[in-house]
Design a protein around this nucleic acid. Sequence first.
DNA 1: GTCTATACACAGATAGAC
DNA 2: GTCTATCTGTGTATAGAC
Lengths: 205, 205
Amino acid sequence: MARLSYKEQIQRVREDAIVEAVNRLLATKGYDAMTVDEVAAEAGMAKASVYKHFASKEDLAAAAMVRALDRAVAFVDGLREQPDASPIDQLKAVAGWAIASQLEGEMPSLPSQNSALSNSLQANEAYMDRLISLSNKLSIWITQAQTSGQISSDLPAEMMLYILFARACDPVVGMLKASGMYTNEQILAWVTATTFDGVRPPSKA
Amino acid sequence: MARLSYKEQIQRVREDAIVEAVNRLLATKGYDAMTVDEVAAEAGMAKASVYKHFASKEDLAAAAMVRALDRAVAFVDGLREQPDASPIDQLKAVAGWAIASQLEGEMPSLPSQNSALSNSLQANEAYMDRLISLSNKLSIWITQAQTSGQISSDLPAEMMLYILFARACDPVVGMLKASGMYTNEQILAWVTATTFDGVRPPSKA
DNA sequence: GTCTATACACAGATAGAC
DNA sequence: GTCTATCTGTGTATAGAC
């Protein structure tokens, strides 16, 4: 039993290495440009070994997304332990976390259009469970924020959710970063601010 | 001379068919999922014929982007003939046009991360000329809007430009459309509004 | 210039020894 | 489970006849 547990630990470590490599590659090159050979090289093992742990490239992407969603859920659960914060501030914190993750190169992003990959993801229980769980938790804050007039009730609640997911892979972040003229803190502040308040000048108090 | 002009016309028509096919495919499937076989099939000719007109798949994408930029410049030039409009309204009109184009499936979009494609585009004079021309025209309005206090001067002017380009391929549009619950007019209005005014409720007059 | 047929390369996936 | 070596499909690009 002790031996088996040790073996399982080794296996777990190697799987973690794979998923981390996938996460990095998805964050930088994207799904299509990522090759399983690269994944194997980054994880420090042979390609065939990767396929012993994951059945397909799509499964690799799904595993990375599951991990990212787990991180998101963990962050949200952390926020929920401060029930005195207003819903809008909670949502801002989530957006900020997502943008910061992208700036750090830790946010995997998939093509929103690839139907084959989308289909395999939607058939993936682990992925869907976490996606729905995260959506539900965020939707509570969204509804509260709309009820209390912190965000517009003219918009469908869904849309606020989509906006948060979209900001997690917003090309504006990459473009600002690529310009090399701004710090990560500035980019984070600007993208968060425009997400919630638009591009208008702050109204004078 | 007449014969040659006729031949040239035929050639032009076929090239248009190719570029239109590429445009549609880029708008729906994206660059990586698009194959030259599909392009040839949609354009109604053999693959080898496509390669007689364009040297590579990257050139196909570039041609579609040039056409899209030409449409954008034409739209902007149309707006410039109404100099009484305020800069912010001009920018809103541009954003609205881009979003509407996306909704109609006419806006090609490329992966923002693919370095090979990005490099070939940045080396493409026709593409870069139009991109710079469009950016310059928009930048005039952006600067004016900032000077007159219609958009925040705290943001770098570049960022407003990036935001406009980003909204032209915003996944939020596709997600709202995919939900099937809203009309194109609603989606257009919502995305435009949140781009400029954020998600806050309209302040009471 | 347009076609059919084909070359070539690359990446996903697997076989089989250890 | 891990590796090396290989299979296989697919997609870019081209040859060569007409």
